Simulated assay, not measured.
Amino acid sequence: MQLTRLALTDFRNYPALVWRPASRLVVITGPNGSGKTNLLEAVSLLVPGRGLRNARLPDLPRQAGPGRWGVAARFADGLEIGTGSPPDGPADRRVFRLDGEVPRSQAAIALRLAAVWLTPQMDRLFGEGASGRRRFLDRLVWALEPGHAREVAAHDTAMASRNRLLAQGGADPAWLAGLEDSMVRHAVAAAAARRALVARLNATLLDGAAGKFPAARMALLDPVAERLDTDPALAVEDWLRDSLAAARPRDAAAGSSSLGAHKADMALFDAATGLSAASASTGQQKALLLGVILGHAALIATARGAPPILLLDEPAVHLDSDRRHDLLEALATLPGTVLLTGTDADVFAPLVGRADGWRTGDNGLHQDPAFPRLSPV
């Protein structure tokens, strides 16, 4: 899954770019605001979802451009994926191409390509609300179970309709029951997928997949998943269906649903010391997250037979010199495409001769003279 060509058209700050990295390991440096994260975001949009920034479609086109955008990539095995505004039709839509054809579903793309990323915003993952941690967990699940995205989306659609009916008052009980039944089925399926991912990831991390980074233990905080620990899925569905029906007056007053897939949270601990990430220093949190990302990449490679694209935006921030060394050495031995960014090129000096080096600037991308050009794929 080595990226061999990336083409951008009116995407973020790039009016037009054709880039051919010569190595699976790529270092991208440059000043803040020069487009480093935009490149990683473009690659993250090759898989279904809203990318590493969780951006809205109107934010993706170049501000001075025509309002349409495109991203296209080719990989060493011949795989070609493109996404962007449709050539004909509303500019606020997004379409995909897989090997030049319209895919039957976005899941067809997710089955061919997986991407995992870590961004500076995730450094605050354990100091903010549960929604960010839940999105982080769901991205880990989606990379292995593409159908999980449909379950979560269907749950949220049914929940939004239920919330509207409750807010209006006097809704037909049978209509509410139908929406709650949809919520229940999708919530239990989502909880089961999250629960399975946490178990598989913890086992992989315990086997040393994080390398020299601390082995993390992930915990799923979700009453639906907890019920699945002891009860069969149909019994959990019955419990959740009854609970939602009983909660209608309370949920109507609150304007939201008190139970469902949207209430799940995630916690992370150092497996050796038991230290919670929420109580750890910023550097310790970063080390635990990097361990999770490396372990997840190993899990994907084992489960799918191909490694994911690994996108690390400013990964060296908050790491001491020993941890930075461990990270670079680990990345140098990983299979698959790894793109990492930073403002200080000196941080990545140990990768000279092993990585392709580029610098952003003037809305373009230029070979970094500090990194000798490697033989192309």
Rank of each mutant, 00 (worst) to 15 (best):
G127M: 06
W117C: 06
A114P: 08
P376A: 11
V236K: 09
P66H: 14
H366I: 02
L206V: 04
L39E: 05
A76R: 14
V102G: 01
R164H: 13
A216C: 12
T83R: 11
A301Y: 03
P376H: 11
L205T: 08
L144F: 07
G33I: 10
R227Q: 15
E226H: 13
R304M: 09
G357R: 05
R53K: 13
G67A: 12
P369H: 08
A42K: 04
L46W: 05
P86C: 13
D92F: 01
L365C: 03
Q63I: 12
D59I: 00
R135G: 00
T333Y: 00
L240Q: 06
P87E: 13
V317C: 01
A167V: 02
L331S: 08
M183C: 15
I309V: 15
A264E: 03
V18S: 12
A219N: 08
M183R: 05
A253F: 05
E180K: 04
A42M: 11
A167G: 15
M218H: 01
L312H: 07
R50F: 05
F348Q: 01
T230H: 14
S256C: 02
V26P: 03
I309R: 00
G147L: 09
P61S: 10
P223T: 06
E101L: 14
L113Y: 09
L294I: 09
A261W: 08
A190H: 05
R324S: 01
V152G: 01
G342C: 08
P66M: 03
R134P: 09
L3N: 06
D123E: 14
T4G: 03
G30D: 03
G342R: 07
T341W: 09
T83E: 02
D242E: 15
L137T: 02
L290E: 03
A76G: 13
T273L: 05
K286M: 05
D265P: 04
V116L: 15
S257Q: 08
R139H: 13
N32W: 02
T302D: 15
M122K: 01
P15K: 07
A193K: 11
P173R: 08
L52P: 02
R24G: 15
D251V: 11
T157P: 00
R62A: 13
E151T: 11
G353F: 08
R324N: 00
P376M: 12
M159I: 00
P249M: 10
L312T: 09
E101W: 04
P223Q: 08
V377T: 06
W19G: 04
S243H: 13
S243Q: 14
G361W: 06
D229I: 02
D251M: 12
W239K: 04
L98W: 11
A130K: 04
S23Y: 01
R324G: 01
A190F: 06
G70I: 01
Q367Y: 02
S23V: 02
L205W: 05
R241D: 10
A130M: 09
G353Q: 10
T119R: 07
E314Y: 08
P31Y: 00
